[in-house]
């Protein structure tokens, strides 16, 4: 075990997986010479050569589109999108091909590619360095989506994504890239996709979150000293660990879902719908959402007002307890 930051854990996963499987390759803007603008791919080009850690032209649709062809040629490409919002040019390929190609081949061909990117706000950056685009990805059939919140999960989930036979999109919480540290198993470390993590056990209310909202929920749980709060880290949005969600809802009877992305059609809405369909008799109050607002992510001087806060989460919990 080593104490690593999230971005170091991701880098560690790459070193292990590129060593283990010669068909794994990394491609993206500035991933090679610079080792990635966040240094997630540092050292790979030196160790594995410029073809297995390839600096692409500046073209996100090209990166993802060529990854499809690379899969057909027997590679397992891991694509980096430099930032959340800069992944948008790749959505054309993602929606029209990545999610459909296996289906189109009658299941004969697999597309074991990964798209990973830093996501989320709170980093005092210029416009379009702050988005939470998970809905666009998770809404696309044929694509799996995972969002880790801890260094250990960042390594284990990326490893699982690389080994997965289907396309997986991994969003990484850039707010905590360097600041959140934790124990990370050495060598091969797999966190299976589709399994939630109980970040904290409690009896009165469940906070459901993923990515950078998990530490926030834990802070809110600390503040709510008189309430027994359970924090469920969803980890994989698709496939979803419904059992864990329903079990926690059954246990506490109260659920608040916390999501940084705008509210309308966000992933919280999906979770709430599942609870409405399958847990209605377990619930002692409405499922509440604390989310970003339905606005373009704001100027950074007032970005904190956009981000779900401990205060907004605790207010939602109190409201639910008073229901």
């Amino acid at each position: 075990m080593a104490e690593l930051s999230i971005v170091e854990a991701i880098n560690d996963a790459f070193h292990v997986e590129l060593e283990r499987d010669p068909s794994v390759m990394v491609l993206g803007e500035d991933v090679g010479r610079a080792g990635g603008v966040f240094r997630a791919t540092a050292g790979l080009r030196d160790k594995f050569g410029p073809d297995r850690c390839f600096d692409t032209p500046l073209a996100e649709a090209g990166i993802l589109g060529s990854a499809i062809g690379l899969c057909m040629a027997g590679w397992r490409p891991v694509c980096e999108m430099q930032y959340d919002a800069f992944s948008y040019p790749c959505l054309d390929q993602l929606i029209t091909h990545v999610g459909r190609y296996r289906w189109r081949t009658g299941g004969k061909m697999s597309f074991p590619l990964v798209v990973r990117m830093p996501y989320g706000g709170g980093v005092r950056a210029p416009e379009l360095h702050d988005d939470s685009p998970e809905t666009y990805y998770v809404h696309t059939p044929g694509v799996k989506v995972a969002i880790p919140s801890t260094p250990s999960d960042a390594k284990g989930i990326l490893t699982a994504a690389i080994r997965d036979p289907d396309p997986v999109v991994v969003l990484e919480p850039k707010l905590h890239y360097r600041t959140l540290k934790g124990e990370v198993p050495d060598g091969e470390h797999v966190v299976p996709l589709g399994k939630a993590r109980l970040a904290r056990e409690g009896d009165d209310v469940t906070l459901v979150a993923y990515g950078s909202m998990v530490p926030l929920c834990e802070q809110a749980a600390d503040v709510l000293e008189d309430v027994s709060v359970e924090v469920l880290d969803i980890r994989t949005l698709k496939p979803l660990d419904e059992d864990a969600l329903l079990a926690s809802a059954a246990k506490t009877g109260r659920v608040v879902i916390v999501q940084e992305a705008p509210r309308v059609c966000g992933f919280a809405a999906e979770l709430a719908a599942i609870l409405a369909e399958k847990a209605i008799l377990d619930l002692r109050g409405p499922v509440l959402r604390v989310t970003g607002y339905d606005v373009p992510y704001p100027y950074w001087q007032i970005e904190d007002a956009y981000m779900p806060s401990v205060e907004r989460v605790t207010a939602a919990v109190r409201k639910l307890l008073d229901f």
């Binding site: 339905d294 373009p296 007032i302």
Partner: peptide
Amino acid sequence: PPADVSLVFEHAYVDPPSTF
């Protein structure tokens, strides 16, 4: 002057959704 938080909800629409 520091930006007021109400600006989070300004300018994206001529007629903002009622939820704002």
